[in-house]
Design a protein around this nucleic acid. Structure first.
Lengths: 191, 191
DNA sequence: ACTGTATATGCAAACTATTGCATAACTGCC
DNA sequence: GGCAGTTATGCAATAGTTTGCATATACAGT
């Protein structure tokens, strides 16, 4: 399972609570592995039971108390071993592309809307990643080894967003063409 | 659930058996939705129970008999309605990128190997998609509407592969740099 | 004859993910 | 004083996926 390993990876540098992990999974690492808070809290308890994480209760003023987790030596060791194993190629699953196989004059407008929405999300994410890149990864050659790995992942995220954005523009243009054709037929029929 | 809808989508034009669907899921549609044969056979039976598919037993000589499935009118209707609903953005999950967050001199060689393997797979897939494009989608403007949707999906697959390939090359170069540094340190230490 | 590969289908257990609901402390706003 | 929003954690049911196993026919090569 990679959720456990993704969580341990997020804890490599910082000791974090479930809540903080949930939010950090929305940004950087989350591009490659999404998880809900229910999954994360459960995984944290499991990993602690296995001795790969240790927890500490942190009372807070002005906020509910929290539990922060950190890697144990066993956890670090297990993570290193996991990296050396085979990756399973979990293919991406995306409703929207399947929908494109069903394109018709009737649903082109709907797909166009979904595309615009998706494009806005990708734009926002791309902007975020580019900010991170400029601030923290401007000169990858000078970074310590592990940071260079994170740089590569970030770069993959950036490239991926860019590709999707360019595709979305093309797709929107093509859909608009279909909508115009259909519109023309409709107004002709309306006469 | 999109597996059911992906299956119905694959049956839009053709009546197929579970086995044929399993194989077709390895190619075109499979880029956006992977499924094992166990999943597919079960989904087919469920969809038939719901009246969205109909089946027919086809005795074969020289091969085991098979059951082929086709969309019913209710199935076509359900599929059209599904397309008009919201897509859930199932984020992609990929072990390998998580592993890059753990990059070290110790695992760089391993990640490099995985990368090369991945690149070979992407290359093969890209070649396949480009052949399909040339043969069947060379002039997208002249295609019927639904085929234009499939063209867009295919294009997304092509772009995606190209992006990953370009990234993999960069990543390999960076990893080779790390391996050389580590190699240098080792030979220095060996003296 | 034996082995491997392809065709063709399926069950059952284990694992992973989603959805709905629940609790509780505190902040800021009207 | 009430209500919405954020922080913080969790249970339980359902849905979906993977893995391991199982069966059976037939062809091609050794």
């Amino acid at each position: 399972m990679a959720l456990n390993h993704a969580i341990m990876t997020a804890l490599l540098d910082d000791r974090l609570s479930g809540y903080e992990l949930t939010k950090s999974f929305d940004t950087s690492l989350g591009f490659f592995w999404k998880a809900s808070h229910q999954q994360i809290y459960k995984a944290l308890r499991d990993l602690e039971k296995q001795g790969l994480l240790e927890s500490e209760d942190v009372p807070q003023a002005g906020k509910p108390d929290k539990v922060i987790y950190g890697l144990t030596d066993a956890g670090r060791e297990a993570l290193e071993q996991w990296v050396l194993g085979d990756s399973r190629v979990t293919e991406s699953k995306d409703d929207m592309f399947v929908k494109f196989y069903n394109l018709s004059a009737d649903n082109a407008a709907h797909l166009h809307r979904e595309l615009v929405e998706r494009r806005e999300q990708d734009s926002a994410r791309l902007a975020l990643y580019q900010r991170i890149r400029e601030r923290h990864y401007a000169e990858p050659g000078t970074l310590p080894v592990r940071r260079r790995g994170i740089y590569l992942a970030l770069l993959a995220g950036i490239r991926h967003c860019e590709t999707r954005l360019a595709w979305a523009e093309e797709a929107e243009t093509l859909l608009e063409g279909i909508l115009e054709e259909a519109g023309g037929v409709q107004s002709a029929a309306a006469r």
